[in-house]
Amino acid sequence: MRGRWRIIPAFLLALFILLSFIQPVIASEETEDEFQDRLSGLLEESNNSITVFYSNSCSACKKVVPEIIELAKEYPEISFNYFDLYGSDENRTIMLAFGEKYGVEYPAYPVVFTGDCTVLEGKSKIELYLRKVLEAHKNGYIPDAEYESSLWSAQSPPSEASNGTATDDNRKISLLLVILSGLADGINPCALSVLALLLATLAGMNSRKKILLGGLVYTFAVFLFYIMAGLGILTIINYSGFSGIFSIAAGIVALIAGIITLTGGIWEGKTVSPGIPVSKRPAIKKIMERASIPAAFVLGMMVGLFELPCTGGIYIAILGLLSSRMTFYEGLPYLLVYNLMFVVPLIAIILAVAFGLSPEKVDSWRDSNKKLLKIGIGLILIAMGLYILAGYLF
């Protein structure tokens, strides 16, 4: 009975992968033509109304939107339109159309559009200037491009760098986080141990070409599996509208996985330690003994299947961040970068072995540094879990 329960994570993961290739169908009462008509109407009315874009997963938005709603009550003669970007590619399309009209290539939410050229990006600008904008609307000074331009050149609105919204600087930090996380995940002892055994088998054939081909095919299979799994998970989250719930769950999973991995590194053998199930190792060994290119590919897919539910805490944490801070299509490049970084250590080891490094030395290094690697990965997972939970809840 216990053996049957072990296949549940693998079954769920396979379901994620299958669904990643299925285009979700979302029931909508609005046709494409009706949406375009509505968008055109919103753009035409934007000069004389206040249009607010925000995200329910944005901490700055959660603070400033209630303030906007309260302020709007003082100006009942002015029309306010609110668009939540959280899980809505349709509202994202509307925001980008507003950005194009107002000359902002990538608006940073929360953002307010009004008048002929007035754009208030971020919590700080909205809190400082929205009342003045509303007063100008009330007194008939807005819309007026000349007046608005002179108003903002005189006021010198504050820099966006300090308001904590989704600016380009924050996106650079996010990209660095993705790169470092992928590299950290790529040196986990589980993946390295299987790779070392594969290389030892291939090295026995005394062929550099077979070492390179077999190792790279194995790495490609792992990369492909992880990409497919990530796409499946992001697709389900994006179209289900549960990105906030998933983000919190990902933070909790990362925190728990970090504690387990950390304690496993400190007290090795005395605690539960994630890894490929012992019952699956004979099957892996049997495939490895074939030492063929197709066998290397199958091995890579098998390792990905059994490794991800056990040691994919960092990956789940990154997917949680992507799902809560970006749309599906914005997150795709970051997903690709993460998985490229994930296989960089594997590729480096394959090249080293192909040009003379003993596979036994790779495995010896892994074994001697196993505790240190687990402690490091455990600390990274704990930090990421706390970061996700703090960023979303507070």
Rank of each mutant, 00 (worst) to 15 (best):
S240D: 02
R92S: 11
A254T: 07
V337P: 00
L197N: 03
F35Q: 06
L336Q: 02
P9A: 05
K371I: 10
I78Q: 09
S149T: 09
L39T: 10
G269W: 04
F328A: 04
N81R: 15
I287F: 08
D185H: 09
I126E: 00
L305Y: 06
G230R: 01
N238I: 05
L120W: 03
P157L: 03
G215H: 00
A383K: 07
L198T: 11
S323N: 05
T235N: 08
A27M: 08
R131E: 11
I380G: 05
G182V: 14
K62Y: 05
F35W: 06
I245P: 09
I22M: 04
G275I: 00
A154D: 15
H137Q: 12
D84Y: 07
I142T: 10
D89N: 12
S20Y: 11
K280L: 14
E135N: 14
A14C: 11
P359L: 03
C117E: 15
S247Y: 13
I380Q: 07
V337W: 00
E74V: 04
E77I: 12
F11H: 02
L335T: 08
L372D: 13
G87E: 10
T118K: 02
P359S: 02
L130S: 02
L389Y: 00
A10R: 12
M301T: 13
D367P: 09
M95N: 03
I276D: 01
Y106L: 07
E34Q: 03
N56R: 15
P107G: 06
A108E: 07
K63P: 11
L336I: 08
V253W: 09
G251A: 02
K210Y: 08
S240P: 03
T263C: 10
G356M: 01
D367K: 15
T219R: 00
I227N: 01
D144S: 07
K63E: 12
G186H: 14
I236K: 09
Y109T: 15
D367R: 14
T51F: 13
P157T: 04
I377N: 04
Y54V: 09
L351M: 14
P66C: 03
K280D: 12
G214E: 02
S156H: 15
S364R: 15
F80C: 12
E32I: 09
A229R: 09
I318T: 13
S207F: 02
V337N: 00
P66Y: 01
L197C: 05
I233T: 04
T118D: 01
I236L: 12
E74D: 09
I259M: 03
T327P: 09
Y315L: 11
Y82P: 08
L393H: 00
P294R: 00
M302T: 07
G204C: 02
T219S: 03
L12C: 07
Y315F: 13
E100R: 14
L393M: 01
V104D: 04
F16Y: 03
P309K: 01
I350M: 08
G320L: 06
A249S: 14
S193Q: 13
W365M: 13
N170A: 12
K280N: 13
V104R: 08
E330S: 03
D33F: 15
Y75G: 10
V253E: 04
S20K: 11
F328Q: 04
T93P: 05
F328P: 04
I316Y: 05
